[in-house]
């Protein structure tokens, strides 16, 4: 917290307006009935009172639910392919929660790994992620069990913390530090401000009571992988909808489809879900035709396969899959119920 700054709440709109000059500023909004990141309207900062997290995770700004990759039109000589107009505007997302910010780190690795995904990475490079420390986590949150927490800064450029009349402002990344350092609206934070922030963060952390031991989840999952009866039982109430995956901050499966009418249209990429029975049906059949295999895949991808590849658990504990699930399927209960390594038959 060494060089932390602060801004009075009544000055936040001014600060965002200032940033609006250089960036397209997005902030939490519930204008259409659902909490989401939307173009900031230039004045409303009421989200400081009601906002806990968005329904759509922050990934949807970088890996949108659907995007046009190129359009296909026809002229006298045949077909014409056009890339969407290039967008160079920088984008500043205000109010990203620590869980969602962390998800970006987990996704970056995937999209830069075997090949560089220009669509995702271009948006990421143009973005500034301004986090907002969690002060009122939900009962479904379990971020502290997966290397995160209500005050974690991973994936953020700047972090704000609500400390009453003021917001404490900390530059996290180089980009973020520069933005904070040169800003005249921000005042230097006092020791009292910093202490208050510390207390608030501790209190928030205490509010997170949903805890799981993820220390050896990789090994435990591996051990139980072939145990069909275990997975049958775990998946019994799953209805195979896409809520938990499409709205998961770290799920990144996508599908590519042509939306064509009369020989014209566009090629689009959209999110896909391994929970769907039609998943990967385009080359042949879904290798996971049974529901229990799909549920197993979802869990293992996050807690076994991804960690094997990238050393991190691909879950940020945001709790969306628990609180939005139609049947209250709870990933933490399932992880808790994994037999210890030595108990397994295999």
């Amino acid at each position: 917290m060494a060089d932390s700054k602060k801004v009075r709440k009544e000055d936040l709109a001014g600060l965002l307006t200032e940033w609006s000059r250089d960036y397209a500023v997005l902030a939490p909004s519930r204008a259409d009935g659902v909490a989401r990141m939307a173009a900031w309207d230039g004045e409303d900062i009421s989200f400081l009172d009601w906002y806990r997290n968005t329904i759509n995770p922050v990934k949807s700004l970088f890996l949108p639910p659907v995007e046009e990759m190129f359009s296909i039109s026809r002229n006298e000589r045949g077909h014409r392919i056009e890339l969407p107009p290039k967008d160079d505007t920088g984008c500043l997302v205000f109010g990203v929660r620590p869980c969602d910010a962390r998800s970006l780190i987990l996704l970056d690795v995937v999209f830069e790994d075997a090949y560089e995904d220009p669509y995702y990475l271009d948006r990421r490079r143009r973005s500034i992620v301004v986090g907002l420390c969690c002060t009122n986590p939900c009962d479904s949150c379990f971020c502290t069990s997966v290397d995160s927490g209500p005050a974690a800064t991973a994936g953020m450029d700047i972090m704000f913390t609500d400390i009453g009349d003021n917001l404490l402002v900390e530059g996290i990344s180089r980009k973020g530090k520069e933005l904070v350092a040169g800003n005249a609206t921000l005042a230097k934070a006092t020791r009292t401000d910093e202490n208050r922030a510390r207390k608030i963060r501790l209190a928030a952390e205490k509010k997170i009571t949903r805890k799981i031991d993820t220390g050896d989840s990789k090994e435990r999952l591996l051990a139980v992988f072939e145990d069909e009866s275990f997975w049958q039982q775990v998946s019994a109430k799953c209805v195979s909808c896409g809520v938990c995956t499409l709205l998961c901050p770290t799920c990144y499966c996508f599908d590519i489809n042509d939306a064509m009418t009369g020989g014209e249209g566009s090629r689009c990429r959209s999110l896909d879900s391994c929970a769907f029975s039609s998943y990967t049906k385009m080359p042949m059949e879904n290798p996971r035709a049974d529901k229990w295999r799909r549920v197993r895949n979802k869990l293992c991808h996050k807690y076994e396969f991804y960690p094997m590849l990238f050393d991190n658990i691909a879950c940020t504990g945001c709790g969306r899959c628990i609180r939005l699930c139609p049947v209250n399927w709870d990933i933490t209960q399932v992880l808790d119920s994994l037999p210890a390594k030595h108990e397994s038959k295999i």
């Binding site: 639910p65 209805v239 909808c241 896409g242 809520v243 139609p326």
Partner: peptide, 16 residues
């Protein structure tokens, strides 16, 4: 039209 702009096509409606 406006309501369905935010549909995620998760098919929860269909699957439940």
């Amino acid at each position: 039209q406006n309501e369905f702009r935010r549909c995620t096509r998760c098919y929860a409606c269909r699957n439940v």
